[in-house]
Design a protein around this nucleic acid. Structure first.
Lengths: 203, 203, 203, 203
DNA sequence: GATGAATGAGTGTTCATTCAT
DNA sequence: TATGAATGAACACTCATTCAT
């Protein structure tokens, strides 16, 4: 892809994820990219097209990751290996939630899902439905194998995911994403996951 | 308070909570209130002042409610009466989260906390800190009394509150708040609370 | 009507009738009216609304005139008075075709009827249909009374009107409407009318 | 001539004759020709140059036709053959007014003569002066030969040409030139010509 | 011959705000 | 209390054109 176009996408994502789509003007983007306003229209049909391309790439990337996770789940059907949790957690937390690109997109979705129906859909899908569905499957599998005693796997998924979601909103999706925010998020989430599985074993 | 001024505040909250502060124009508000644009400046110094007054009233109201809850907690210091949970739950869910005014304000906070530092503070306080601190106190008390066995009361609070928070984001703070959204929210949250206390008793 | 609004309408008509609707910018109009560009939107919803109001007024005015002509025709049903021709000619030429307002509108219609369907309709109506229909009626009446010998009244109308139409296009609807243009138009048309009725009497 | 250049000229004429010069953008032309916008500047110095070349070719072609008509007139100086009218009519109507290329150019002239002085000149020449001058000559000749009784040959020319001109404006120079438009035009004009010469013979 | 990339000038329009009445 | 009228600043976007490749 063209160098300038890529730069526009990067800058746009940066700004959109900080202030939202409608609050960021073409002027703002161009100032940072250091091109004239009219030039942006060589690379994109209009402002919306920039957002669309950003979202499209995210959905592709996220779908890909989800596919890998599902694959991993299927192959460990019979015996759950010790590092399955660490692997999936790592994949989900580090490569998804805390990945710079994904994180910015998700913050953008968080801002814009109020005023944009299309974004509302993507937001619901990737913030709630997909993660919860996947976790439900994981707990179902764990019950089948006998590692976890039978229960409502959906509710288990919610209990597992919701503190992570809360921390995400609390530490990740704010005005400026500092290293401190990231650190606090990581600590809180890892603590939760450890506690959660400890308690499951206790019972 | 002046009738027109109150009408402006009501309409502004309606619109702000749907589309966010910056997406709503003075024009939009005046069209609904049915006054001319210049007239609004008799009642408010500027657009920001409308928001400020809205937030100020919310903080007063929410503080009041929190004070009542704290009071209730202190007076039931010794023996916890059977209807304490129902009372506080009702107070928190119906009179706060699902109260029309509070709900609109919180949606507004959810939209604007990204681009406005002052709102970020209020958002953090009333979405995370205050609720979690109160719940922590509740669980501490329950441990002191012996109803709940000693544990990390803060983590308990998070486990209790985060699914509620997730449902709030999922069902309450969306484009349009329909009765269906509210119903789904209520069902999900009540189910969670019931499950949560059932599991605590099991142990 | 508001003074500024009227001034905008006048200036807009001047400019539109010289260069066409799309070639004239809001800036152009405001420069002449001596207001800022944003001010024009206090008086008109958008650029199109200026044109609409101009056309609407024209249609009202032209309909009115046509009504008067039709009235005059009906009342002279029985005996055609000597000054009927002069009167109607005067009414049609001086008060319509050569009236400053009407003339400007018709030039505007002439420019824009190519690219605007709504204008195409008005253009057809007031440049062709209405004048030809009226003239047809006049000749029909003259035949009934016996002043003109029976013939195809429609074709007579065309023969009468088309040279006037040609002169209009040739002298009236051009870049700049000078007094010289007007004079040449008037001379040519009056000569035609005189000749036309002379020849009719000859037969 | 270069193939691409010719294609540009064709497309430009199509578009210009529909919407006028200034309403058609280089983008519009290039989209249809299927080349990039910058490419057009290899073939033409600028947008105006396209129009100039179009007009230049028209003037050449029209002059040629007019020359042939004048020739035909001179050679039939003495005895007017029976098919002279049909020939010239055919030449003028079918090969000129209704010829696709000429027709498009004349519509373009009709649109643009308001805002462009150079076009105004060409428009006047080919819409009024040349046709009227030629017709005047024809009628003069007919008078000389004795076929038509002596009269104001200029006025005769106007009486002959103006209904044709009116029909041209009414049916040929509109938004979209459909077959129906063409048919109506042809019918109306032929009827007029027949009538016109019948009446001349009557006298 | 053709194009990728860029640009200055301009277009219609919106917005929060001001101020005299 | 309310409004008519105005405005500066910003907005997304279009256009003809240039120029190196």
């Amino acid at each position: 892809m063209n160098e300038t176009k890529q730069k526009i996408l990067n800058v746009a994502l940066d700004l959109f994820s900080q202030n939202g789509f409608s609050s960021v003007s073409i002027r703002d983007i161009c100032k940072v990219v250091d091109i004239k306003e009219s030039s942006i229209y060589y690379h994109f049909k209009n402002k919306q097209a920039i957002l669309d391309e950003l979202l499209q790439y995210f959905e592709m990337m996220a779908s890909d990751l989800m596919f890998q996770l599902e694959q991993a789940l299927t192959t460990t059907q019979k015996t759950i290996e010790g590092d399955f949790f660490e692997k999936t957690c790592d994949c989900f937390l580090e490569k998804y939630l805390m990945d710079e690109y994904c994180n910015k997109i998700m913050r953008l979705l968080s801002i814009e899902h109020f005023s944009n129906n299309e974004i509302q859909k993507i937001y619901d899908e990737w913030m709630f439905d997909k993660p919860l569905n996947f976790q439900t499957k994981v707990f179902s599998l764990l019950m089948t194998i006998g590692i976890v005693k039978p229960a409502d796997s959906r509710y288990l998924a919610i209990k597992f995911y919701s503190p992570i979601f809360l921390c995400m909103q609390r530490w990740l999706f704010r005005g400026t994403l500092t290293d401190e925010c990231k650190k606090t998020f990581r600590e809180n989430v890892y603590k939760h996951i450890r506690n959660f599985f400890n308690e499951m074993e206790d019972k």
